[in-house]
């Protein structure tokens, strides 16, 4: 096909525009993070006087100070406990519910399913007062347990939606064969359906785990002391802990990002598909 001059001009503009567009977003995503990492190696004097450019001497001591001052190991451990327990609790509860709703037929089925899935429409942020009062009434305020229960509950609609979808796709014959072989109701769940739903459980689990790891608002609202402080909440207190030592605080922030980025580098495909599964199917 022969192209006219104006068509060639349009093609060139489109090509340049495309790469500029990509470059702009790469810049906006990566430069702040790279700047943060570089700055975390500067002395406070250098940060004030020469914000751009590389540090003259790389201050590894910032990281030593960050580790010793921030109480990071404790925060990290709390976050791991909350994320692991929440994910387990949420998956068990959602899988049991999903099993009953996907593999059995009964009168209230549609109603219960719609009710549980409608939860995604509610802005959880509006529940600050009731969650605070529930935590106080249950005498669980300022504990890791209340975070685990609240996070597990908040994520039920999304998890159930994903797991229910996977369970509905399992052929009926597999279960019928198991029943003939003498499987009871709960054995159909533990031996047939649950193992076959693994991809769905991994997807939902990824979503819940990342939610817990990064959650801030309710961690702030429902806890007060260091013993139940999670990593994200801990970052909030760095400002007070590193009053004059700004660059060590930036080093501490970099340290909190490292595990996430590290895991992301290896599992990005799984994480991306897990986190977006809800929206794609909805």
């Amino acid at each position: 096909m022969i192209k006219t001059k104006s068509q060639i001009a349009i093609d060139i503009i489109a090509k340049v525009g495309k790469w500029l567009f990509i470059a702009f977003f790469l810049f906006m995503t990566l430069v702040p993070i790279i700047w943060l990492i570089i700055t975390s190696f500067k002395s406070n004097f250098e940060y004030e006087t020469e914000p751009l450019g590389l540090p003259k001497v790389w201050q590894w001591s910032n990281y030593a100070k960050a580790l010793s001052m921030s109480g990071l190991p404790r925060l990290f451990l709390n976050s791991v406990i909350v994320a692991v327990c929440t994910t387990a609790l949420n998956l068990i509860v959602s899988a049991m519910g999903g099993f009953a709703l996907a593999r059995e037929n009964f009168k209230a089925r549609e109603g219960i399913l719609s009710l549980l899935l409608a939860g995604v429409l509610i802005p959880i942020i509006a529940f600050m007062v009731p969650y605070f009062s529930i935590a106080t009434k249950l005498k669980l305020y300022d504990s890791l347990l209340i975070l685990i229960i609240v996070y597990a509950a908040i994520n039920i609609p999304v998890s159930l939606f994903l797991i229910y979808g996977f369970m509905s796709d399992i052929p009926k014959e597999l279960e019928e064969a198991a029943v003939i072989d003498g499987c009871s109701f709960s054995q159909r769940f533990t031996r047939v359906v649950f193992p076959l739903t693994k991809p769905g459980l991994v997807t939902a689990g990824t979503l819940v785990f990342i939610y817990c790891w990064n959650e801030f608002t309710y961690a702030m609202l429902l806890t007060s002391s260091v013993k139940s402080r999670t990593l994200q909440l801990g970052i909030r207190f760095f400002k007070g802990q590193f009053v004059v030592d700004y660059t060590s605080m930036l080093a501490a922030i970099v340290l909190t990002m490292i595990p996430t980025i590290f895991v992301y580098i290896f599992l990005h495909d799984k994480i991306i598909s897990g986190m977006t599964a809800g929206a794609v199917k909805g």
Partner: peptide, 12 residues
């Protein structure tokens, strides 16, 4: 790369 900010916490 574009998805990366979604796994880093809002706080950081």
């Amino acid at each position: 790369v574009f998805f990366l900010p979604n796994v880093i916490s809002q706080v950081a």
